[in-house]
Design a protein around this nucleic acid. Structure first.
Length: 274
DNA sequence: CACCATGTTCCTTG
DNA sequence: CCAAGGAACATGGT
């Protein structure tokens, strides 16, 4: 969001090209094309992992809200009209000399005019609505493993598989512990860890140099973790447990273990997350 | 060839 | 009705 916003504000959509219709859902592709044609970007914001594009269209009195999600492999960025389109381009919005590109290797992401998936979302983790009291209440009574529960977007918005492991590691909580069994100090520690992990990730992600506008012949687009193509080592994100299976814990030297919960990989330290 | 991967949604089972 | 689990979506890397 922070990379895209300055590039998109004020730009007008001249044409909409859809290369992979599947990514437009559940809104019908034709409706999206009609709604976006001649619309102008006013702002970009975010809710959980969803990007919210606010536009004004001469065809409607009320603002248009375009909702985007990158899924696992999606990228959205601007490039020059003369640049070649990426291999898995799903949607292109022509903006005059530039174009907005949404490309997605696996096409799990989407663009939509339907806000239904936002309605069920829990509080923003960095907002006051995400209080320790709320968190404790939301975990109470749940018998599911805390790691699995953290992935529910209606608990708290925006925690994904990587940062769920990272937050539990920081809070020194075993991922398999039933969510409702956390003691008050653990709820507190996890609440803190979620906020820390995500705010560090946002700071990292928004500071990393990406070829995001149309200033060069290539674009990095969004990344999920690790680092952007060609960025200096300095910008490599240092995850503390995720993907460190078999390596030693940075705190206690115990070997990091990988387990599977709800068909998703979880990494943790058996030494300090006991 | 088999298996793995960052996310969400839908369907089934209990 | 709800909770929980698994499959599906599609492609590429190891």
């Amino acid at each position: 969001m922070r990379h895209l916003r300055p590039h998109l504000k004020g730009k007008r959509i001249r044409a909409v090209q859809i290369f992979r219709e599947r990514v437009i859902r559940p809104t019908p592709a034709n409706q999206l094309i009609q709604t976006l044609r001649e619309a102008t970007f006013r702002d970009v914001s975010r809710r959980g992992k969803f990007l919210l594009f606010e536009l004004r269209s001469p065809r409607s009195k009320t603002p248009v809200q375009l909702i985007g999600h990158l899924g696992m492999t999606g990228r959205m960025f601007l490039q020059r009209k003369s640049d070649p389109l990426p291999k898995h381009t799903a949607v292109v919005l022509e903006l005059g000399r530039e174009r907005f590109v949404y490309e997605d290797q696996r096409y799990f992401g989407r663009l939509s005019l339907d806000a239904n998936s936002l309605a069920r979302m829990g509080p923003e983790p960095l907002s006051p609505e995400f209080s320790v009291d709320y968190f404790a209440e939301a975990l109470a009574g749940s018998k599911r493993a805390i790691k699995v529960r953290l992935l529910d977007q209606d608990l708290v918005a925006g925690v994904g598989n990587i940062y769920a492991s990272e937050a539990l590691y920081r809070a020194r909580i075993k991922p398999s512990l039933a969510a409702g069994k956390l003691k008050r100090p653990q709820v507190h520690a996890l609440h803190r860890a979620i906020r820390d992990v995500l705010s560090e990730a946002v700071r990292f992600g928004s500071t990393i140099p990406l070829h995001y506008g149309a200033s060069s012949g290539r674009s990095d687009g969004l990344f999920y973790y690790g680092r952007a193509v060609d960025a200096p080592d300095f910008y490599e994100e240092r995850l503390r447990v995720y993907d460190r299976h078999g390596r030693s814990c940075r705190r206690c030297k115990t070997l990091i273990r990988k387990i599977v919960q709800a068909a998703r990989s979880t990494y943790y330290c058996p030494g300090c997350q006991g």
